[in-house]
């Protein structure tokens, strides 16, 4: 039986997890460093709250608005409420800001999850890469 080349497997795993990690971290860092501060600034002022909400209405990749756990129901109800208000040309009141922050926190938790996932993928990639290097001299010996 032909022996499977382990080095090819290790390098494939290392590259795949590295690419996935870069993808996750770039999306999450963009959210953390660009979108979240901008949204926080917009929802802090009554006159830009609607723009802030529209920015938050686009979900973060790891914190979508499709699936709901019991904790996420408050976010779902907030989305329903603010969609209705804006669709009917209403205004978001200053005292409703905590509900916008609830949506912002969901986005933050999504980007945190993305960063942690990327770190995990980088660790897996490093291990696979180390295994690739370790395997090389053993083969040539």
């Amino acid at each position: 039986m032909e022996k499977i080349n382990d080095r090819n497997i290790y390098i494939s795993i290392a590259i795949t997890t590295l690419v996935l990690g870069i993808f996750c971290i770039s999306i999450s860092l963009y959210s953390r460093l660009v979108v979240e501060p901008k949204a926080e600034k917009l929802i802090s002022l009554p006159e830009t709250m609607k723009q802030g909400y529209i920015l938050l209405r686009e979900p973060q990749l790891f914190a979508g608005y499709k699936y709901w756990d019991s904790e996420g129901l408050a976010v779902k109800n907030s989305l329903r409420y603010f969609d209705f208000v804006i669709a009917n040309d209403g205004e978001i009141k200053a005292e409703e800001r905590p509900y916008l922050e609830l949506i912002l926190n969901r986005r933050r938790s999504g980007s945190t999850l993305g960063i942690k996932t990327a770190i995990f993928l980088f660790i897996v990639s490093s291990i696979a890469f180390a295994a690739f290097i370790f395997e090389q001299p053993k083969k040539s010996a």
Binding site: I54, R57, A87, D89
Partner: peptide, 10 residues
């Protein structure tokens, strides 16, 4: 899309 819809309203 909801974003486009809301943007038109704002």
């Amino acid at each position: 899309d909801i974003i486009k819809f809301l943007k038109k309203k704002v």
